[in-house]
């Protein structure tokens, strides 16, 4: 049996404002195994981002338990590169914060950047890079601290369609090659189907897992190839019905 990296057991979370109390999640149970790419889809406003904040340990559940074996790296909708730092300084940011800013780790992070085509841009500022390259730099920054699980919060939704397809393939390729575990949150069904090994469908608020599917693409990991395959539309239709049914 594979090692579990992340596990939610019967998690409930309530939000408090002066006016009311909102249940964001109730009886939420699922797990992510090592090396797995799990996508979570749900109706809008079902608390998808909340789920990632819980996984990252930024929120504490009202009840239930969350166990995470290892560190996490967060990737957001926008690249959130710091404009006053060079690409290299941006990539080294998690090392500075985690006090693991050793020469060895810096060299590893730099090597990663070079490996994935950012070598020429290390001393450039984010404003000099295209949207796709910026998102790639954001991914390398996330990988620099060698997290055990990547938490991806709709990381492609801010890009235009053409760039999105390319960057999705690009990011997926990097994550697969580095053998990383990933939890992707998205509202885009086709993105989930083209990327994940397993898809969880959430109910509307309070969120819990309504359906769970192992995708049968076999060895086809490339999102662009998956989009061309026969199963793609089958899965798309099924998930569409489950989301809207």
């Amino acid at each position: 049996m594979k090692k579990q990296i992340l596990r939610f057991s019967d998690v409930t979370l309530a939000y408090h404002t002066v006016r009311e109390e909102t249940l964001a999640a109730q009886h939420l149970t699922f797990s992510v195994d090592e090396g797995e790419f799990v996508a979570v889809i749900g109706p809008s406003g079902c608390g998808k981002t909340t789920l990632l904040s819980l996984a990252a340990g930024l929120l504490t559940p009202s009840s239930g338990r969350i166990t995470r074996n290892g560190s996490c790296g967060y990737m957001l909708q926008k690249d959130e590169l710091f404009p006053w730092r060079t690409i290299e300084k941006n990539i080294l940011l998690p090392l500075e914060i985690k006090h693991s800013n050793t020469a060895e780790n810096r060299e590893k992070a730099r090597a990663l950047a070079v490996k994935y085509g950012l070598g020429d841009f290390l001393s450039a500022y984010p404003s000099q890079l295209s949207g796709g390259m910026r998102q790639r730099a954001a991914l390398i920054r996330t990988l620099a601290s060698e997290p055990d699980i990547l938490l991806l919060d709709e990381p492609f939704s801010a890009l235009d369609y053409q760039t999105r397809l390319n960057v999705t393939a690009d990011v997926s390729d990097i994550i697969r090659r580095e053998g990383k575990t990933a939890l992707l949150i998205t509202h885009d069904i086709s993105e989930a189907v083209s990327l994940a090994d397993r898809v969880l469908v959430l109910t509307k608020r309070p969120a819990r897992v309504a359906y769970e599917h192992d995708l049968d693409f076999g060895d086809v990991k490339n999102p662009l190839k998956r989009r061309e395959s026969a199963q793609f539309s089958k899965w798309f239709e099924l998930l569409w019905k489950e989301l809207n049914g």
Partner: peptide, 25 residues
């Protein structure tokens, strides 16, 4: 807000957030 979230997800404390994000930005 998102940059703050990012810093916190990296495990930054308030001093680090101040020095590396709030003051430069």
């Amino acid at each position: 807000k998102n940059k703050l979230l990012l810093m916190r997800s990296m495990g930054a404390n308030k001093w680090t957030i101040l020095a590396k994000l709030v003051i430069p930005s």
